[in-house]
């Protein structure tokens, strides 16, 4: 079970990448509008600084480890996987996640099928399960192109798809969120759910990564 594992699956995903410049202080006029709105709302007691703090803490606490835990359960429990693919929103309640009133659909990658998620109109994303969406997910270039030339975009992410692998692109909406169920890597038969979850990356849950690699047991 995953309840008492000492590490936090998902805590270290993708940290090896470069970071865009930190905008720690708002400087643009447009950002200052946000700062001004916040000041007005708090001054008027529409919400309190304490409520803001608690909200940020909750949002910042969500990370891809949640999605990874769902994937690990599906890999380990075929009956759960069947329920998950049939009705994602209902099945994840078994693990304590409730996205209602949103619909939630999980899409399974197979040898012949690769799924990838986008929100062309905005930035819809299962944040409770994956944390903050990456900047590229919200970028015009990703949103514009992945529905038109998914193989080219996936190649930029290092995903080389054989011609006989079908690609399906799923466009999220305000009411419906998607997550990918990546393929379980070979050689992981002996792993428990916590160790399996640790193999699952954020990008594999979005579909911009296809192959997961089992970690070297000696490195653990």
């Amino acid at each position: 079970m995953t309840s008492d594992h000492p590490h936090d699956p998902g805590h270290d995903h993708d940290h090896a990448r470069t970071f865009q410049p930190d905008l720690s202080e708002p400087t643009s006029d447009a950002a200052l509008i946000g700062v001004a709105l916040r000041r007005l709302m708090i001054e008027r007691g529409v919400y309190s600084a304490e409520e803001e703090r608690a909200t940020i803490e909750r949002m910042a606490g969500a990370n891809p480890g949640n999605g990874a835990r769902i994937v690990a359960r599906a890999w380990s429990d075929p009956a759960f996987k069947e329920r998950l693919l049939a009705d994602g929103a209902e099945a994840i309640k078994e693990l304590g996640y409730d996205l209602s009133p949103l619909e939630f659909t999980v899409l399974e990658n197979t040898d012949r099928l690769h799924n990838v998620v986008v929100c062309t109109l905005c930035s819809c994303y299962p944040r409770a399960l994956l944390g903050q969406s990456p900047a590229w997910y919200k970028s015009k270039n990703y949103r514009a192109r992945v529905v038109r030339e998914p193989r080219a975009v996936l190649a930029e992410f290092g995903v080389a798809l054989a011609d006989d692998v079908e690609v399906r692109v799923h466009d999220s909406t305000a009411e419906l969120r998607y997550m990918i169920l990546p393929q379980r890597p070979a050689g992981t038969e002996g792993l428990d759910e916590a160790d399996l979850a640790a193999l699952v990356t954020r990008d594999s849950l979005i579909g911009t990564q296809r192959d997961l690699t089992p970690k070297d047991p000696a490195a653990r």
């Binding site: 970071f19 970028s139 270039n141 992410f157």
Partner: peptide, 17 residues
């Protein structure tokens, strides 16, 4: 923007300020 022509995806990460 879905389907419009656009440039390469900037994959670098961004910390939420």
């Amino acid at each position: 923007v879905g389907g419009r022509a656009a440039g390469p995806v900037d994959r670098s990460e961004h910390d939420t300020a």
